[in-house]
Structure formats: C-alpha cells, structure tokens
C-alpha cells in the first residue's frame, strides 16, 4: 500500500446514546480528489477525527499510508489536515501559528514562509489571527495542512464561508495536489462544491457509506435515458411524444423531460407532428441531482425518525 492513502475500515462510534458511525468504510487514493459528502450529522467530521487519532473508534480502524495515525512519529509529514479553520488563538499571529506547528514536526522556519507564499497570506502573516476573515483563516489552515508537504491532505468543509474567488482558487489548488499524486480527501455537505473537482465521491448518510464511486459513473447512472426537450408548444409536443409510449413530464415552463425514447426517434416524431423545438438533447444530471437521489432515503428516514 502506498503512503498516499487513507483507508477507513468498518468504523463504529457511539457518543453516549447517539450512534455516529455504523461501519464507515472507504479508501482515498493517491492522485485523486475524493469527495466525502453527506448531510450534516452523517459522520464526516467524526470519521476525520478518528483518522487523526483524536477520537477512539469503538470498532474498526483507520490507516494513513497503511499505519494508524497515532503510530506516526511526525504525523504532519504523513497527513495534513484542516478540521476547523477557526481553531486559532485570536491573539497569536498566523505566522507564529505555523511556526509552532513546524517546530512540533522538526521543520525549519523557511518552510513556514514557503507555505505562506503558497496560500498567498504573506502580507497578513504577522497580524493576530483574531482579525482574519474566514477566507484568510481557511488559507492559513490549508497552509498548516501543507506545512510538512504530506502525501495525504484531508480538509473538512474547506469551502464554508469562502468567497467565489477563494473557491476557484482552492479547487485549482486541490486539483493540482492530486496532479502531483497526493491523495486529497475533501468533505462537504454540498455536492455542488465538488462538481468539476472530485474524481471520486464517497456519499455517506447516518454513519455509513451509501455510495462510493467515480464521479462520471455516478452522473451517468443518475442521468438515466432521459431527454430534455425545450419547446414553446409543450402540450403538442407532449401529445406527440406520449403517443410513442414514452413517459413525459413537464419539468419547467417550455421544458419537458422524456424517458424511454432515443434522441433520433424523438427528433423524427416531433418533426413528423410539426412541433417546433429549440433544444433536444440527452439529459445530463448534475452531481447534486445524483446526490439527492442517493441520500433521499437516508434523509427521509432521519426526518421520519425525528418527527
């Protein structure tokens, strides 16, 4: 097993009466950005704390590069993590925050200046962290995660509170890390944040994995064999298409979703009926739609149980 992996295997964790994890199992691999997605309370943060050896699992194990995190002599050289960007002493400067972390890993101060430059925080580095915006804190947290140049990077909800510019920067940054064969695990409760960035998604709900697959496969399965048809004459079009046995639903004004009909057939049917249309194409599900399809059961169960 390469150094650049996180393996989570059968984690169980209870906090008093509440069960947080029920057999959480997945692997984050090198060269890939793995999205770790699920509604709030699904067990993402708990899993990450167990990976870092902060919490003890009741059962199961979590390995970083094949070893338990607690057995690592210089853990930040194996795994860089950002759990909570606001976990800073407000009176300590960002630079000093990185300096003590560097000292704890036996690293020099030159490395601190390197990562500060890498995240673009040099100008604010000597100011007290209490005055940082959330975006600056996120950058500082990412600098801390990268400090010892680890093969695995794990970020918990890094996009929270970031401005659009920051989000773009972070996506490119994480993609570049994966491009250098790092394993990147990013949690989010919003699938949209991962679209266009994650190679793999681990979808979790109620403490276990619901789906663990490549993003391309997930979208394909959620897209199904649907077509989208844009037309001003929706009722005419619907009548013509239904006559072929296809299922038609109106999803929006001037927009129909058609199931059970190849594209060529649909074009010829509409042309034969003389119905004008401005767009006719296979429907491509968003990652979010796929996610909602997957988590609906888990969410329903949760709201049902709590009501």
């Amino acid at each position: 097993m390469t150094d650049a992996t996180i393996e989570v295997d059968g984690l169980h964790k209870r906090y008093g009466a509440a069960t947080a994890l029920r057999g959480m199992t997945f692997t984050a691999r090198p060269g890939r950005v793995t999205g770790f997605v699920g509604p709030n309370g699904a067990g993402k943060s708990t899993t990450m704390r167990i990976i870092l050896g902060l919490h003890r699992a009741d059962a199961g194990r979590a390995l970083v590069g094949g070893r338990p995190y607690r057995s690592l002599r210089h853990p930040l050289r194996h795994l860089g993590a950002l759990l909570d960007a606001s976990a800073l002493h407000p009176a300590r400067s960002g630079r000093n925050h990185l300096v003590w972390l560097a000292q704890s890993q036996g690293l020099g101060r030159s490395r601190v200046d390197e990562v500060l430059a890498q995240v673009g925080l040099e100008s604010a580095a000597r100011r007290a962290a209490g005055g940082y915006s959330l975006g600056m804190r996120q950058r500082l947290g990412i600098a801390a995660a990268l400090l010892a140049d680890p093969p695995v990077v794990m970020l918990d909800e890094p996009f929270n509170g970031m401005d659009p510019e920051g989000i773009v920067w972070l996506r490119d940054f994480l993609r570049a890390l994966a491009g250098r064969q790092r394993a990147v695990l990013v949690s989010s409760h919003l699938m949209t944040e991962l679209q266009g960035m994650a190679d793999q998604v681990v979808v979790v709900g109620r403490g276990r994995v619901i789906a663990d697959c490549a993003v391309a496969d997930l979208i394909a399965s959620a897209s199904g064999d649907r077509l989208r048809v844009r037309t001003s004459a929706t009722s005419l079009a619907a009548a013509a298409l239904t006559s072929t046995g296809a299922q038609v639903t109106e999803t929006d004004q001037d927009l129909l979703s058609v199931r059970g009909l190849p594209v060529e057939r649909a074009v010829s049917v509409l042309a034969a009926a003389g119905v004008p249309f401005s767009e006719l194409a296979p429907h491509r599900a968003t990652l979010e739609e796929a996610y909602f399809d997957l988590t609906r059961d888990a969410v329903d169960y949760r709201s049902g149980a709590s009501s």
Partner: peptide
C-alpha cells in the same frame, strides 16, 4: 483552556499524539 475553547487542542494533538 483557550486550546479547548478555540478547538486548537485538536490541532495540537494531531501534531503530536
């Protein structure tokens, strides 16, 4: 106590267990 208050204790303990 500030380490607990600001959750900095997690950073500290993940840097050295």
């Amino acid at each position: 106590t500030t380490e607990f208050r600001y959750a900095l204790i997690r950073t500290t303990l993940s840097a050295d267990h």
